[in-house]
């Protein structure tokens, strides 16, 4: 029914559409005025700087002219040379693969956890216990990776607490920071440790806003708790889930730079070196704005493709999309 209606609207002649729009704007001018502050900010701080994307295709020297802006014009075009420098090396495929695997695992394993935690937190009877837990798990988000690295080094290092217990029990030491595969586990665990509580915040607002009447109605219909969770709670937070998931997928190439930079070491480069850390290592001591611009553009393009793709899939599958 609804579908047919929308099709009809689409078939309307364009002039009619414009007329409708003008009529709507006349009726709700304030709605459009409300958009202005946001649009102005976006125009100034997002769209205006877009001309700088050209830096990715130049050999940009910030001192080439009187100021960095004029220097963009004064710098030489080099085509795709900056991209070639980035991706030309034999290591790049390995690094790309690592990036996708590690950040893919983050999505598969870590993304659902805060949702589950948020749903079950809501079911805790003692509200005090709930808020204490909620507050506690949110604390690690404010720890810098340098400090987290310190904590987990003393916990998981070869002579750390965990390995002392393991060796006392008569087992072999576990090389949490040396074994390429196990180290990926360390990355996932520390990321989860740091960010689960923060991500719970995202979902809590929608959860508490679910109308209690829905649950009352379900109770009368004889639904049990599990059914309530599946048929009321989950669908209510689905829009937020979809939105966060799509953006997470969009960050597939860029996530985890700071974490890995602090936690990794030469022994696990083979499995843990991601694009960000690799490019960082290659460029230490150099001030190459063009290189970072090229990397930024590459990441943006990939991320845009991923976001648009996931958005399309989710539109088809769950009738929900980002925009």
């Amino acid at each position: 029914m609804k579908n047919r209606k929308s099709k009809k609207i689409q078939r309307k002649p364009i002039s009619k559409k414009i007329k409708d729009t003008i009529k709507y704007i006349r009726l709700h001018p304030t709605l459009y005025l409300m958009l202005i502050p946001g649009l102005v900010l976006l125009a100034i701080f997002e769209f205006l700087p877009y001309y700088g994307i050209t830096i990715a295709f130049k050999d940009y020297n910030i001192f080439a002219a009187d100021n960095p802006l004029a220097a963009i014009g004064a710098s030489e075009w080099v085509g795709f040379a900056n991209f070639q420098k980035l991706f030309g090396s034999s290591d790049f495929m390995r690094v790309l693969k690592n990036t996708i695997v590690i950040n893919g695992l983050r999505i598969i394993i870590l993304f659902p956890i805060p949702i589950i935690v948020a749903i079950f937190l809501r079911e805790v009877r003692s509200k005090k216990f709930m808020s204490v837990t909620q507050t506690a798990i949110y604390i690690p988000y404010f720890f810098s990776w340098a400090v987290i690295s310190g904590i987990f080094n003393s916990l998981l290092g070869s002579y750390g607490v965990v390995n002392t217990v393991i060796t006392k029990l008569g087992f072999e030491r576990v090389g949490f920071f040396q074994d390429p595969e196990i180290f990926r586990g360390v990355l996932l665990f520390t990321d989860g440790w740091k960010s689960v509580g923060y991500n719970v915040v995202l979902f809590m607002a929608t959860l508490v806003a679910i109308s209690p009447e829905l649950y009352e109605a379900a109770k009368i219909d004889g639904a049990n708790k599990w059914q309530e969770i599946c048929y009321i709670t989950l669908p209510s937070i689905l829009p937020t889930i979809v939105m966060v998931l799509i953006l997470r997928v969009g960050n597939l190439l860029t996530k985890g730079f700071e974490q890995i930079l602090v936690l990794y070491n030469p022994a696990v480069y083979d499995s843990a070196d991601i694009i960000g850390t690799y490019v960082y290592r290659m460029g230490i001591g150099q001030m190459d704005f063009s290189r970072s611009a090229a990397l930024g553009l590459f990441n943006s393009v990939v991320s845009a493709t991923l976001v648009i793709g996931t958005n399309y899939i989710s539109k088809k599958l769950v009738k929900r999309s980002l925009w």
Binding site: Q178, A267, R281, M282, G285
Partner: peptide, 23 residues
């Protein structure tokens, strides 16, 4: 030398550490 050697040195140091550990 001044701008390039930092990255090269990092690479050498990584190589040395892994030679020591036999990786």
């Amino acid at each position: 030398y001044a701008t390039g050697n930092t990255a090269l040195l990092k690479s050498l140091n990584d190589y040395i550490a892994l030679l020591v550990t036999g990786q």
